[in-house]
Structure formats: structure tokens, C-alpha cells
């Protein structure tokens, strides 16, 4: 859990870094701390994994990855961990999760697959299936983005 002060720091940092020469100084002043203290705190957050990455978030459509598919796999609970790991190892997979199954939803492993085209994504899924033996899967494309926002914490 984060302390109240740490929550305040998250709240400021999530607004992003400004393009001033000393962007941390500006944020530190708003928090009533020194630039050095804030920088140390950011490094501590990175060590603790609270900050996963400190860098740029790009709009991926603009860097050539036009198609993305959610490929879902029907994998029994006994094999979920092994299979999840193997599917995650494919370089085209950006995200891989094991989720609970429901009577109406038997697919437990979710992979996000990125390719240049939809056919590319289908081909990648085929290769993943052949290599791992994970047979029962669906390739589900998105047809429209209805919302995509950075999360605002503690607001």
C-alpha cells in the first residue's frame, strides 16, 4: 500500500512530464519537496515496481503495427501455467494473461497479438497453435476503439 504522500506523488506524476528543462523541479515544487527528493522517490518507485517504466508511451498504430487481435485459448486449469508461459514467449505477443473461465466463456488464456495485417495475426496464431499444441482458440479482432485512456489514480 502507498502512504498518503506517495499517493500525492502518483497523482502529480500521472499528469506526465513537461517539456521544461527541469521538469522534475516543477513537479517537486507542487509537492513541497526538493527536486532531489522527488527523483529519489521515482527511483524507489521503479525499484518497487510501482512505476513499471519511465519513458514515452507511443500510439502504436503510428509505428506500423496496424492490426491487433485478441487470441483466446481454451486450456484446462492443469495446463494453464505451462501453456500461458509458452504462448507468452512468442515475440508477437505483447500481453498474456490467464483468466477465470465461466460456463459461457471457456477460454482461459488471453494473448494480444500484433501484426502488420489481420491475415498476419491469423498466421501468427496458427504458428502459436502448432508450436504449443494449444488447439482450441479464437482470433477476435477489434473493429472500433471506443475508449482508450491513461488511468488517473486517486482522483
Amino acid at each position: 500500500m502507498l502512504t498518503e504522500m506517495e499517493k500525492k506523488i502518483v497523482r502529480e506524476l500521472q499528469e506526465g512530464l513537461s517539456l521544461e528543462r527541469r521538469p522534475f523541479l516543477y513537479i517537486a515544487e507542487r509537492l513541497g519537496m526538493t527536486e532531489g527528493q522527488l527523483i529519489d522517490k521515482i527511483k524507489e518507485f521503479m525499484d518497487r515496481g510501482v512505476i513499471r517504466r519511465f519513458g514515452a508511451t507511443l500510439r502504436h498504430q503510428d509505428i506500423g503495427f496496424v492490426a491487433n487481435a485478441m487470441v483466446v485459448w481454451k486450456v484446462g486449469p492443469g495446463r494453464a501455467v505451462e501453456m500461458g508461459q509458452r504462448l507468452a514467449d512468442f515475440p508477437e505477443v505483447t500481453h498474456c494473461y490467464n483468466r477465470k473461465s465461466l460456463p459461457d466463456w471457456p477460454y482461459t488464456i488471453f494473448t494480444m497479438v500484433h501484426g502488420r495485417t489481420e491475415e498476419d495475426c491469423r498466421e501468427i496464431a496458427r504458428r502459436m497453435s502448432e508450436a504449443t499444441g494449444a488447439g482450441d482458440y479464437q482470433v477476435i479482432f477489434s473493429s472500433r476503439e471506443l475508449k482508450k485512456n491513461s488511468m488517473k489514480y486517486f482522483v
Binding site: 500521472q14 518507485f45 515496481g49 512505476i51 519513458g55 508511451t57 507511443l58 500510439r59
Partner: peptide, 22 residues
């Protein structure tokens, strides 16, 4: 140009204390 969406920290929602679902 919209190529960079933002600069700065990307948080791990779980470590921040949030829980999520799809």
C-alpha cells in the same frame, strides 16, 4: 503529431493498490 501519447511514469496498477478486470 500524436505519435507520443505521453511522457513519464507508467504505473503498475496493482502495485499502486488498484485491482482490475476485463
Amino acid at each position: 503529431m500524436g505519435i507520443i501519447r505521453r511522457l513519464g511514469a507508467v504505473f503498475d496498477s496493482r502495485k499502486v493498490g488498484y485491482t482490475g478486470t476485463l
